[in-house]
Amino acid sequence: MKFLEQFGRYILFLRACFRKPDKWRMFWRAFFTEVYKMGNDSFLIVSIISMFIGAVAVIQFGSQLQGSLVPMTILGRIVRDANILEFSPTITALVMAGKIGSNIASEIGTMKVSEQIDALEIMGVNAASYVALPKIFAALFAVPALVTYSMFLANVGGAISCYFSEMVSVDTYVQGLRMDFNSFFITHSLTKAVTSAFLIATISSYNGYQTEGGALEVGSASTKAVVQSCIAIIFFDYILTQIMLY
């Protein structure tokens, strides 16, 4: 019952968000600032995590293939597809939920409790759209870009791990990477990325916007935003995989 009520409010919030901005110039300015901030904030952490995930994936799959009759070129292929299909989009999204999700929720939450949102409303600005819409669009842009970058780096990480582990040669790994490439996997992965971006940005904005009280509530709103975003990401990950790949 509580969930339904929350969900209804979330939908109403979305409806308020997707109104035409009062001034496009202000919207674009905010949009570019947000894209820059999101990219800049998460670039380093996404790089590190992607490299290591690729590296670990090579060792994990490699150790299972060792001693079997399967040719080791398959390793590159498996790691590539695992990275593209699951590791990069999902883990990047979860990391972004922690980074930008909490940022969005605490920023909007602070504006709410210090009456800045009220001040916007009184001026006649559509506050929901003014504070949240640039963030939503920026996330729709930044998350898929970071996911693409992460796919690339994860495969590079795999190569580095091959270089150090002597399990397979880098050449064999790269040969595997180029085998039987299915471009639909990229479509699938980016669909997931866009969906996650939407979920992170809207759920976090919503939680920020509902904040009432003071600094304490801002903190709990931002925690809630991260937890709910993560759950939603994993849930839609499952749904989309079921729909698109099966």
Partner: peptide, 20 residues
């Protein structure tokens, strides 16, 4: 019409409510 009317309203908040 509400939007129009709101632009004719100014409000001074207790804490100022400046955009920080």
């Amino acid at each position: 019409k509400k939007k129009e009317l709101r632009q004719e309203i100014g409000m001074l908040f207790q804490g100022g409510a400046l955009f920080d």
